[in-house]
Design a protein around this nucleic acid. Structure first.
Lengths: 240, 240
DNA sequence: CGGCGCCTTGACTGGCTTCAAAATGCGTGG
DNA sequence: CCACGCATTTTGAAGCCAGTCAAGGCGCCG
């Protein structure tokens, strides 16, 4: 995976940052020329359940997830949550407001989370002057759209087992430390969140996990997943 | 709905164009200053079933639908089609390749169709120089993302009837001539396409339409739909 | 007028949802 | 450190909805 966006001013805190490679990739390791210099707010920390933004809020910033994870949700009339997306470290979020200028959903931290906040107007202005940054911005937007498309490809499957396999495969791909897909992962979200993401009952998700375990594809210990047969999981996810 | 993008050089052909209002909105009615002057290829016409682009193609152009309609599809391993989106007059398409530079899906004309083709690199370059055009481009991208989100909100519903109501409501909203939602519409796609868009069996879609007709919400005559109780349809689509 | 897609309708089966309860994990406070 | 209480997850049983298979009707185009 190539870097997403340049980091703001490299600092000790950036060492752990998922986006660190980006700084090097663009050759802006030195502070003076960092394309995002001055754009970033201080890192923002959220506790589990805290909201980063809410539907109706004006689009002021975009966010890069540094640590933890978030979900974006819409609230149906009856109060039920629909989970639109999960946002993992290194991913950009907040661009759902691009068309109207206002967010269409709520962003909720799934655990203790840290994000890098960038002023969107400033980012746009800077991008207009720097073609490389502009290209990276288009690319970040495109990656978000691709994740949405993958979500659709899960939901369009009619078998619950297919959706679950696709989900796990996708999370493993996105969680990979570098290069390979992860084989050990700790899901940041609950079974209920997964269910509301996949359009299933939470019991169905639980049973699906158990089934994959019985088939020897994965090991399940609560939210800790051990992918024992990556090829088989990929096969389940690809074909169907 | 505000205009999406400026038209290329106003011409007699543009009179019927769904995007016509845009030229006026931006105050570029006169030919000399039209922001898209020189970017557009000649209008491209497609017959039913013809492909505008195919998965793997390089992103060279974006397209504005002028007449007719298209679907974007992915082909599963077993040859089954998944319908990712429908593209109606006035809508932009082709931006699914923004992240990788290559299209992720095929675009197929649903009937006789005409599109306006814009060179994407040229559009980007022009947008970088004209803030208004840039803003419109961001907005067009955002609108596409919003439609994807609406698709997810359909698919995440577990009741077939909910998905169908949402689908019809959404098409009516997008088909509106101006201001109000349309109450009479002729669907450009088959029941099978709808089924593959909603993740249902085509028989289930057919039964859903019949059910809505029996309930007095719509009138069905093949692909011609008469929305008899718009409020009720909206209620079904909103709550659920 | 005939053929061929497309759409509708019917009957049956299977998988998912729902309701219910038990088990596990986890944070808190004693 | 342990005990408690709550949230989360798993498991079980029953009913219903949607998928599948099959047949019939409609409209369109040659």
């Amino acid at each position: 995976m190539e870097p997403l966006l340049d980091l703001p001013r490299p600092s000790p805190a950036c060492t752990r940052c998922a986006l660190r490679p980006a700084c090097i990739a663009v050759g802006t390791r030195g502070v003076p020329d960092c394309p995002l210099d001055g754009l970033a707010h201080p890192y923002r920390r959220l506790a589990r359940g805290e909201r980063l933004f809410t539907a109706g809020d004006e689009l002021g910033s975009v966010y890069l997830v540094r640590e933890g994870a978030l979900k974006t949700v819409t609230l149906a009339r009856d109060g039920e949550e629909q989970v639109l997306a999960f946002h993992l470290p290194g991913e950009m979020m907040g661009l759902d407001a691009m068309a109207t200028g206002r967010h269409r959903c709520d962003a909720v931290a799934l655990g203790d989370t840290e994000v890098c906040e960038l002023s969107f107007p400033a980012l746009q202005a800077r991008a207009a002057q720097r073609p490389i940054l502009q290209a990276q911005l288009y690319r970040a937007i495109g990656l978000g759209a691709n994740r949405d498309q993958e979500h659709v490809e899960m939901l369009i499957r009619r078998q619950a087992s297919d959706r679950i396999a696709l989900f796990l495969h996708g999370i493993a791909e996105r969680t990979r430390p570098i290069g390979e897909a992860a084989t050990q992962l700790t899901l940041p979200m609950s079974r209920e969140d997964i269910a509301r993401f996949l359009g299933l009952a939470l019991e169905t998700v639980s049973r699906g996990f158990t089934r994959l375990q019985d088939d020897g594809v994965i090991g399940v210990a609560g939210r800790h997943i051990d992918i024992r047969a990556p090829r088989e999981l990929q096969r389940l996810a690809r074909q169907a």
